[in-house]
């Protein structure tokens, strides 16, 4: 068991990093729709994304492209960090309402902040 403990500590602490992001972008969810549905962020840069849930039920922000999955409770905001990403389109959706809660993160070399 001692070996196991050491192994776990090494794995966790060698991967622990607390770099802060410089750019912040915002999304909000209302009536099971993400606004804006397309968000442009700069390429090759780590950004902070704050998502607010204005609905009365929880939603799970989910993206296979971005490798992100986070539950957002009603009336709450969550922060996730994405990037650095190559230019392109990265889809995301609300796991609990996948037919309506859809959106795209557009990563562009030229920076257009919405």
């Amino acid at each position: 068991m001692k070996t196991l403990n050491i192994f776990l500590l090494v794995v966790i602490f060698t991967t622990f990093d607390v770099k802060s992001a410089k750019d912040t972008f915002y999304l909000y969810l209302e009536s099971h729709l993400f606004y804006p549905s397309e968000l442009v962020i700069p390429a090759n840069k780590k950004v902070k994304l704050i998502i607010e849930n204005k609905d009365s039920t929880p939603e799970e922000f989910d993206s296979f492209d971005l490798n992100r999955e986070k539950v957002i409770y009603p009336g709450r905001k969550v922060t996730i960090y994405i990037g650095p990403l190559k230019p392109g389109r990265y889809e995301y959706f609300g796991e609990f309402n996948p037919n309506t809660a859809l959106g795209t993160i557009i990563v562009e070399s030229d920076r257009h902040v919405h």
Partner: peptide
């Protein structure tokens, strides 16, 4: 899954 969970909250930032 530990790696996945910690990556969600930016506590691991390498090997992503």
């Amino acid at each position: 899954q530990v790696y996945f969970h910690l990556a969600q909250v930016d506590m691991v930032t390498i090997g992503l």
